[in-house]
């Protein structure tokens, strides 16, 4: 298990995609800090960026990596190794290398320019979001045997959570604006891992007042320690549940 984890992490860190991703994100992060006049403003920009880019890269990278290592997985399965530990090592390996890439590209600039509470929160959310979307990537790569379909499904998942979900919520808010649905809607929004992270960021950025009633609701529902714990629980569940399903699928898969 340990050997396998080291092996996979090494393999991924040599991967060109992850290196390119780290360099790109690194450039963006530095330029955001240099261009924005205050560090806090830069953190806001960075927060929004992390919410969009990290999920996309995580889900695409993990899906493609699993498909590309089909041969390697085949080799591993014929060895005296538990299937569960093979899958776990893959998951842990991708997570470790993703965290490493994030560390170099986002965490270092944050630690250098603005090692504040908000900065740490963004780092934490980046780690959580990457884990959630790696887990979703595992699920879609095990659900579809065909590579193109699997990657397509991953893209749809990302689109859904990053854009479509918000659109739907907005649609319902307008359609049922005569009814008091703000409260249930905030709860529904909290079911989306990206939205829940955004809510957490917003409540910490102290600009929810700009968002009127909904912002006040967010603050009321998620601003307390209790609310934050709920948010963290939701994120943990989002990491665990898709991964767990993919693990069960993988344990019974014919290779």
């Amino acid at each position: 298990m340990k050997e396998l984890l080291i092996l996979i992490s090494k393999d991924i860190l040599k991967n060109r995609t992850i290196i390119a991703f780290a360099i790109l994100l690194f450039c963006i992060t530095w330029s955001v800090f240099i261009l924005e006049d205050s560090n806090e403003k830069a953190l806001h920009t960075l927060g929004n960026l992390v919410l969009m880019v990290v999920p996309l890269i995580s889900i695409l990278f993990s899906t493609i990596y699993i498909y590309n290592s089909t041969e390697f997985i085949e080799l591993l399965v014929s060895q005296p190794l538990k299937r569960k530990s093979i899958w776990m090592s893959l998951f842990a390996g991708i997570n470790v290398s993703m965290i490493f890439a994030l560390f170099v590209s986002i965490f270092l600039p944050i630690l250098f320019y603005s090692p504040t509470y908000l900065g740490f929160l963004i780092m934490l959310l980046a780690i959580f979001l990457s884990a959630v979307f790696i887990s979703l990537g595992f699920l879609s790569s095990i659900l579809f045997k065909d590579k193109a379909r699997g990657i397509g499904f991953s893209m749809i998942l990302w689109l859904f959570f990053a854009l479509i979900f918000d659109g739907l919520i907005l649609f319902f808010l307008f359609q049922f604006s005569d009814y008091p649905i703000e409260k249930p809607m905030t709860v529904i929004a909290a079911l989306n891992p990206i939205d829940v992270s955004r809510i957490l960021l917003l409540t910490e950025m102290d600009n929810e007042a700009l968002m009127g009633y909904t912002g006040a609701l967010f603050q009321k529902q998620f601003g307390s320690i209790y609310g934050k714990m709920i948010i963290v629980c939701i994120l943990v569940l989002w990491v665990f549940i898709p991964y767990y399903f993919s693990l069960i699928k993988f344990s019974n898969k014919d290779i």
């Binding site: 050997e3 396998l4 092996l7 393999d11 040599k14 290592s69 089909t70 041969e71 390697f72 085949e74 080799l75 591993l76 014929s78 060895q79 005296p80 190794l81």
Partner: peptide, 26 residues
């Protein structure tokens, strides 16, 4: 086990493949 069509990670060298499997066998 010797498979019909051996499939190995493309970027590994022969030495690495042999080493890897040696390490994985407990």
């Amino acid at each position: 086990y010797m498979p019909q069509i051996g499939k190995y990670p493309a970027n590994m060298t022969i030495k690495e493949v042999v080493e890897t499997i040696r390490k994985l066998r407990k």
